[in-house]
């Protein structure tokens, strides 16, 4: 067990959607939403760091996204990641999960040997839970999803608990392997103050070539950014053109008003309400 790659995404905080975030025409005003570290990717990173604490493994975090996503990569450094890479290119825009997984899988291959890839179970902007398995398929490695517990790890094998719908399973597998991690698995650690001081001013570095990648590895003041050209990707497989699924239309959810009857907030009101319930009760029982 030497090298771990963590997949992390910056997402709009859909848990804090307010009236202001919805535009008049019913679409979402992304700019009005704070961007956060996808919650379950923090669990994936925490699992990687806890393995690093035990075994000394090296932890690399990669994220595909716009330059702003550097924020979560810096956060990863503060938490204890060894290396971080931003995978960024205008041509990645509009990627569905298939196009995303192509880019991430190619980036992982570009970065060289690895033993373990950790992803979050799902990203809260889409809740699809597809990118992890799709990356595993493209790398041709084993996958176990819905990991709620890291049970054991040694040189050659890892043992985890997988959360099923009816039962959970304790599974052991050899490397290489991809796991998708749920929020039951651990509590992500806080950023480390010393590391924050050290990496606070780190910033993106573009035009990374194969020759100078190693040089950037040594100097963590810069966060290497890899583009379509750097990774030698097929543009037809990236972004919108590489995405079989297309958004045909979107519609904001319209609230249908009921014919509401409010009862008085006193004993009489409750009694009337109970009478109504009894009527229904008689019907359904």
């Amino acid at each position: 067990m030497k090298k771990i790659v963590v997949l992390a995404k910056q997402v709009p905080d859909t848990t804090n959607i307010t009236g202001e975030t919805m535009k008049e025409d019913g679409t979402v005003n992304r700019a009005a939403l704070p961007a956060i570290f996808n919650p379950e990717d923090l669990n994936a990173l925490e699992m990687a760091l806890s393995i690093k604490d035990r075994t000394g493994a090296e932890v690399t975090v990669i994220s595909m996204g716009p330059p702003k996503a550097v924020e979560i990569l810096k956060h990863s450094l503060y938490m204890g990641a060894d290396f971080v890479y931003l995978i960024s290119d205008r041509k990645f825009a509009g990627a569905d999960t298939l196009a995303t997984s192509y880019v991430l899988a190619e980036a992982i291959k570009y970065l060289g040997d690895f033993d373990l890839v950790l992803a979050g179970r799902q990203a809260i902007d889409g809740d699809t839970a597809q990118v992890g398995p799709q990356v595993a398929d493209k790398l041709g490695i084993n996958i176990i999803s819905y990991i709620k517990k890291l049970v054991d790890i040694d040189e050659n094998r890892i043992t985890v608990e997988r959360d099923g719908d009816f039962q959970s399973e304790v599974i052991r597998s050899s490397f290489p392997l991809l796991l998708t991690v749920t929020n039951d698995a651990n509590i992500p650690r806080y950023p480390n103050a010393l590391k924050m001081l050290r990496y606070f001013r780190s910033d993106l570095q573009f035009n990374i070539s194969e020759e100078n990648t190693d040089q950037f590895k040594e100097n963590r003041w810069v966060i290497p950014t890899l583009s379509i050209n750097d990774l030698k990707l097929d543009p037809a497989k990236c972004g919108l053109s590489g995405s079989p699924t297309k958004v045909h239309k979107i519609k904001s959810i319209v609230l249908k008003g009921g014919d509401l009857k409010i009862f008085e907030n006193n004993k009489g009101g409750v009694m009337e309400l109970v009478k109504e319930i009894i009527k229904d009760y008689a019907e359904v029982n």
Binding site: T97, Q134, D137, I143
Partner: peptide, 23 residues
């Protein structure tokens, strides 16, 4: 969209290069 379906469907969509829409 069970724990099983949500693991096996993306594997297939990746290897067949076909679209998959969740939930």
């Amino acid at each position: 969209a069970t724990n099983m379906g949500r693991e096996v469907a993306p594997l297939i969509s990746s290897s067949l290069q076909t679209g998959l829409t969740a939930d």
